[in-house]
């Protein structure tokens, strides 16, 4: 992410970091564990709130685009924040209702790490106590698509994910794109 951060932009430079995660996906041998359900959404109207101006076919790279610093991520922070608080909380509540889940059925909420207040709003909406919410934004900031697999990897390394645990993943990002996935942890 740092390759598209403007070091002069105080609204974005501090928010993001670099990092990556990887998962291997295979067919489960047990029908009670694995990816149980997903709700994914998109609203292209959000495209004007978080974007990179140049470098694509709409505005190819030129001396001018470089001089104008148009190859960096631009964010209208307040607008994205307001959409994210509602979007991530709503879709997480929706996947719980759809699967008849209560807070007791969920061992971990693993949310995208963009802002603690967005995460708190989502956990409150789901009725989850703070100790069920994976947080590592303090150490890595927002690594975009990296946040959730990094969280899962750290939980697994720390022995905090047990076979059969109910896990909700939730994210909100540029596009807008957002969603929630319900899974039962299937590693022993």
């Amino acid at each position: 992410m740092s390759s598209i951060l403007n070091p002069e932009d105080r609204t974005t430079y501090i928010l993001f970091g670099d990092g990556g995660g990887a998962v291997l996906i295979e067919r489960s041998e047990d029908e009670n564990v694995g990816i149980m359900d997903s709700i994914l959404k998109m609203d292209g109207n959000g495209g004007s709130s978080l974007y990179m101006t140049a470098g694509g076919s709409a505005k190819p790279a030129s001396h001018e685009t470089v001089d104008n610093k148009e190859h960096y991520a631009v964010q209208d922070g307040q607008t994205v924040f307001k959409s994210a608080v509602v979007g991530m909380a709503d879709v997480s509540a929706e996947i719980m209702e759809k699967n008849h889940l209560t807070a007791d059925d969920i061992t971990w909420l693993v949310p995208h790490q963009a802002n603690l207040r967005i995460i708190d709003a989502t956990a409150r909406r789901m009725g989850l106590s703070p100790e069920k919410v994976m947080i590592n934004i303090d150490r890595y900031g927002n690594t975009t698509a990296g946040t959730i697999p990094i969280c899962l990897s750290e939980l697994w390394q720390q022995g905090k994910l047990k076979y059969g645990d109910g896990v909700i993943l939730a994210s909100f990002g540029a596009g807008y794109t957002w969603g929630s996935i319900y899974l039962r942890w299937g590693m022993k």
Binding site: Y13, G19, G21
Partner: peptide, 23 residues
């Protein structure tokens, strides 16, 4: 059978930038 996560790992670069770096 559902799809399942059967391995998970991550990598972060070594260089750490605390908030004070930006001040």
């Amino acid at each position: 059978m559902p799809a399942n996560i059967t391995a998970v790992a991550h990598y972060v670069p070594e260089d750490v930038f605390p908030n004070s770096y930006f001040e």
